[in-house]
């Protein structure tokens, strides 16, 4: 049960209503809209992340799901498991990302494995060893590596907010990426 009341979309400014019309009227947005002075800027960041062509939707959902799992965010997992499936991840791959299956036996590409390993190390230890960084940097290059960190950062921080508030999972509303 959410520990803070959710706002209703109708009470919001045009900018916020347009964002919810575009991305979905999700509990997370109705929650964060309690703080309109910072919410609008945050939605601009989210829009850019979701619209960037640097990664495929499949890769972005893979990243999100792994972060959500490592942070224990049931809300992010609920929203993004469906999206991950829709983006082409198999049930076996999703299970592996959730540590309910073997990452080595889930047919991830070498790049996907590099990304998953980086996320695991960074979210667990809050840093990266030199060789881990070098492997990811060689695989992804400056821009994609930095953008990967931006996506991790976005969902890591958000998971803490969602866990703190114990936000209810949406009954039917789903994010439109």
């Amino acid at each position: 049960m959410s520990r803070i009341p959710l706002t209703s979309a109708e009470q919001q400014s045009d900018e916020i209503r347009q964002f919810m019309a575009r991305r979905g009227e999700l509990n997370v947005f109705r929650l964060l809209a309690n703080a309109p002075a910072v919410f609008v800027g945050w939605t601009q960041m989210v829009d850019e992340i979701l619209e960037s062509p640097t990664y495929t939707t499949r890769m972005r959902e893979l990243i999100t799901l792994r972060v959500a799992h490592l942070l224990g965010s049931t809300y992010e997992l609920a929203q993004h498991s469906d999206l991950a499936r829709a983006a082409g991840l198999t049930q076996r791959q999703i299970d592996a990302v959730l540590d309910a299956g073997d990452l080595n036996a889930a047919d991830f590409s070498p790049t996907e494995r590099t990304v998953l390993d980086l996320i695991t190390e960074l979210c667990s230890t809050r840093r990266l060893r030199d060789d881990s960084f070098a492997a990811a940097h060689a695989e992804l290059g400056d821009e994609a590596l930095t953008e990967l960190l931006m996506i991790i950062s976005c969902y890591y921080g958000l998971a803490l907010v969602l866990n703190a508030v114990d936000l209810d999972i949406d009954t039917t509303a789903r994010l439109r990426p």
Binding site: N34, L122, R126, I152, Y156, G157
Partner: peptide, 22 residues
């Protein structure tokens, strides 16, 4: 309102710390 803003501070600066450390 201020509770959510405070949580958004945690959100942003914890995520930023990961990027800076990485």
């Amino acid at each position: 309102e201020a509770t959510i803003e405070m949580l958004m501070v945690v959100n942003r600066w914890s995520g930023l710390a990961l990027m800076l450390n990485a």
